[in-house]
Amino acid sequence: MKKIMNDPSQIVTEMVQGLVRSYPDQLKQIPGTEAVMKIADLKHRPQVGIVSGGGSGHEPTHAGFVGDGMLTAAVCGQVFTSPTPDQIYEAIKAADAGRGVFLVIKNYSGDVMNFEMAKDMAAMDDIDVRSIVVDDDIAVENSTYTQGRRGVAGTIFVHKILGAYARQGAGIEAIEELAHQITPNIKTIGVALSGATVPEVGKPGFELAPDEIEYGVGIHGEPGYRREKLQDSKHLATELVGKLKEAHHMTAGEHFAVMVNGLGATPLMEQYVFMNDVLDLLAAENVEVDFTKVGNYMTSLDMAGVSLTIMKLIEPGWVAKLDEPVTTIGW
């Protein structure tokens, strides 16, 4: 393992310090926590607070999406480990401007439990806290025999759209309704070329042969649905677009937003090549792509590979919300 770090057990603390010191005009640390909050006068123009968080190792998620028009605060847990309820609770209190706080939770048992405990704590303070659990990863079948679909890169679309509506002044009920409306329309699937190494563990969570890839791997290295020999970008795009097309019951004329997300160690050059193939395939389906985005947004430490998120735009207003400018470091 080669990593730029000091004591691996301090890596999250030092990362958060480095982050807020790099962007002191935009971000501040909530005292006593590893949660990051936007610098803004919340009382001047009170909005519904949008708070997210999760394990670290997915940077710029989630702290990179804190800022005007997106998240009010983000809680950084240990690497690949949910943040704890006391920290989430502090973030909820800090983000509350009197209009309630909305939590965006990725569907992992740890995240769901810790955020639920924090929600219980905040309810005792009479803060109106509501939430959505995002489960966009279609690699996992939704059944009673699993935890259900995982929350991955599509979560960023939830941050963006809810953040835009919150900035516009939407109330907590409207935000909650919207969250339940957009989330089922977001679907993601990934392909990994190599595993991720957790600093405190020191070796990759899984190993692939030099010429092997795995479809459907989770952002913590959860095993996927199939391994095969690496083939060209067109082949990978055909597999992932095929899965998403099926999940969306895609039909000609429908409108979509598309995000190619790098998992950490895949160069942007390769991501653009992949997007080029994705757009060819979608053009062949005669669907409209109204929004595109390429880059490292929901990474998995040093994992190589990409994920593809396709969101069905069933409301014409959503694309404008995706397009609105924000002052975050990550979007």
Binding site: G55, S82, T84, Y108, S109, G110, N114, E116
Partner: peptide
């Protein structure tokens, strides 16, 4: 345990 373990084990053992 609730504030330091994190993950799923923190809330479970903590609770």
């Amino acid at each position: 345990l609730i504030s330091k373990v994190g993950g799923a084990s923190g809330p479970l053992y903590g609770t």
